[in-house]
């Protein structure tokens, strides 16, 4: 009887927690343990690959909310949310004219937890706004100035990639909104100087006398859509770019962007 009592008293949450923290498994995963002392708080930042994105110590002024607005971090978080929800959506969505629209409706009507597409869509819109605000903040604090010139350039490309990601995703529901937004958008490629068949200079490029080099089946828009109109091939191309091509490039540049923040003097502040 008293043995049982001992056992029960040993099962109190506090003691259980202690036991877990002493176990070999826990200590193999979390080397430092609970960061209760300043020393451990530093070690935890150094020992964790994700937290290692940050330095051990930061300027107090740099992390004031009214200074940084947190927009860069929010953008990165939204990218992660979009990657995750996008991956889930790919399990149900088929990028063909026959199924695309039906699958999108099914995602709302039939698939459990029918807000996955909503999170993806609204998150994408939010990300566009947060990227703009991040750029706005960086400009207003003059944080593009030396030594951060290069990282500002990387940021501009990331801004463009964000817009392109959103643009390619716009076509995938294959509804009227998608179709015509992409028709209007992609038709601008038709007017690319020299490379679009209705662009200035395109009809100067001819083979011999009168075989045009740039026609509606050989211009920039054709390469973008894989056809002369927004159809099956365009849907597939935008799908591949949206799900694989652009996220890979964006992820690669984000790694450069974050690395350069650390290299170029950490979060910005007066020199």
């Amino acid at each position: 009887m008293s043995q049982l009592k001992d056992l029960l008293s040993n099962l109190s949450p506090a003691k259980l927690g202690e036991a877990i923290q002493k176990s070999q498994i826990y200590r193999s995963v979390f080397r430092v343990g609970v960061p209760v002392s300043d020393r451990k708080r530093m070690l935890v930042m150094l020992g964790n690959v994700f937290l290692h994105l940050h330095p051990v110590k930061v300027r107090k002024s740099g992390i004031r909310l009214r200074f940084t607005w947190c927009m860069g971090g929010i953008t990165f978080f939204l990218f992660l949310v979009l990657t995750f929800t996008g991956l889930l959506l790919m399990f149900y969505y088929r990028p063909t004219i026959e199924y695309a629209y039906v699958d999108i409706i099914d995602l709302r009507e039939q698939v459990p937890l029918g807000i996955m597409r909503e999170i993806h869509r609204w998150g994408a819109h939010a990300m566009v706004i947060s990227v703009w605000l991040h750029m706005f903040r960086v400009f207003m604090t003059g944080s593009y100035k030396p030594p951060r010139e290069f990282n500002w350039g990387v940021g501009v490309i990331l801004l463009v990639l964000t817009l392109l990601l959103s643009f390619t995703g716009y076509l995938l529901p294959w509804d009227q909104l998608a179709m015509w937004a992409i028709t209007v958008g992609s038709n601008m490629a038709r007017a690319t100087p020299f490379a679009g068949y209705e662009g200035p200079g395109a009809n100067l490029l001819t083979l011999g006398e009168n075989i045009p080099l740039i026609s509606s089946t050989s211009d920039a828009r054709f390469a973008l859509l894989g056809g002369t109109r927004v159809g099956e091939m365009a849907l597939l191309r935008f799908y591949v770019l949206h799900c694989v091509g652009l996220p890979l490039v964006a992820g690669f540049l984000m790694a450069v962007h974050f690395w350069r923040i650390r290299r170029d003097g950490g979060i910005s502040g007066p020199l």
């Binding site: 089946t217 050989s218 054709f222 390469a223 894989g226 056809g227 002369t228 109109r229 159809g231 099956e232 091939m233």
Partner: peptide, 12 residues
């Protein structure tokens, strides 16, 4: 590779 992006057969 760029040429690869221009299909020869169209389904139109």
């Amino acid at each position: 590779t760029a040429r690869f992006m221009f299909p020869n057969v169209l389904f139109e």
